[in-house]
């Protein structure tokens, strides 16, 4: 018995001496290393935000909040207003979502069910991820030389049959908010598909069994149990896609037409905040750069709000789960 106690004492001693071992120091060092990394990312974000704010400050004090509601953009007389761009950013992103969300969620459901063999499903989702890998400038080129000529007859048709709706009124143009929305929807669909599919795949199989055992058909199971159960992930993917669509620059600058125009018609050319900055920064004078910084700040604020709303929605739905 006493020898046993001695054993355990020696064991304890070993444990104590180990606390100052190189392993222990490395462990603490690792903590500090990761802390510094995490802090530097946060500092970087604050630094960029501050820099943009400082650069934009003269414009903010000159134009104030009226900048957000004015529609004139005249660098010659230094009169600036961002409303057409705010409108174009929001409308093109929302129309893109309107197209991409039903399609994306539908594809995600299809790929998470066993309609087709697993290998085929994997091949399809690989293809979808390849869409996400297309550089946006390439999509823009494709838009200019293939998509716009291809869509023109359709736009004319839309305008002649549904022209009485303000959304499709005016004289249809190839480079328009609608063209931008359609190409944006192609760009953001992979995000919605892959995140939604991942969410649906990770749902516990007992949920499906439980619903089936109550006499639910496959569709009743999907629509009323699986999709609601995965709603936080699906909404998260939609919000991520929305942020991507609002911030997308190259495709917007190449396809939206860059017209400083506030028109209800989707068939009219317009512009977005990102396309405005991309198309003007090169020739901008001192004041104009300050104004573009202000515009960039507005865009950052808009995506920030989207992200916060997304977090709130996701939290709300996770509480139900």
């Amino acid at each position: 018995m006493s020898s046993f106690a001695g054993e355990s004492q020696r064991f304890t001693k070993q444990m104590i001496s180990k606390r100052n071992s190189p392993e222990r120091i490395a462990d603490q060092g690792f903590f500090w290393l990761t802390l510094v990394m995490a802090a530097s990312v946060a500092l970087l974000l604050i630094w960029i935000g501050l820099q943009i704010f400082t650069a934009a400050f003269p414009a903010i004090s000159t134009y104030g909040l009226g900048f957000l509601t004015s529609t004139t953009w005249n660098p010659v007389s230094n009169v600036y207003g961002l409303l057409p761009q705010i409108y174009g950013t929001l409308v093109s992103a929302l129309v893109a979502l309107l197209i991409a969300v039903p399609l994306g969620v539908g594809v995600a459901v299809f790929l998470s069910e066993d309609f087709i063999p697993y290998t085929l499903r994997d091949a399809i989702s690989m293809g979808i991820e390849l869409i996400a890998a297309i550089p946006s400038v390439v999509l823009g080129l494709w838009g200019i030389f293939v998509f716009v000529p291809f869509m023109r007859p359709f736009y004319t048709f839309l305008n002649s049959t549904l022209g009485w709706i303000p959304l499709f009124a005016g004289s249809p143009r190839g480079f328009s908010l609608l063209t931008l929305s359609l190409v944006l929807s192609v760009m953001i669909m992979p995000i919605i598909i892959s995140i939604s599919r991942g969410t649906l795949n990770q749902l516990p199989p007992e949920l499906r069994l439980g619903a089936m055992a109550l006499g639910a058909t496959r569709w009743e199971t999907i629509l009323r149990v699986l999709i609601p159960a995965g709603l936080s992930g699906i909404i998260g993917s939609v919000m991520l896609a929305l942020g991507r669509a609002m911030g997308e620059t190259m495709v917007a600058a190449m396809l939206v037409g860059n017209a400083n125009r506030l028109s209800a018609s989707l068939l009219d050319p317009g512009s977005t905040i990102a396309s405005l900055i991309a198309s003007q920064f090169a020739e901008a004078g001192r004041v104009q750069v300050q104004v573009l910084m202000y515009a960039g700040l507005v865009l950052m604020f808009m995506t920030l709000v989207i992200n916060i709303v997304a977090e709130m929605i996701i939290k709300k739905f996770q509480n139900i789960e």
Binding site: E206, L207, L209, G210, V225, P228, A229, I320, E321
Partner: peptide, 9 residues
């Protein structure tokens, strides 16, 4: 079932 499986509702 063996494991309780209420829906997240």
């Amino acid at each position: 079932f063996q494991k309780p499986n209420p829906f997240p509702k």
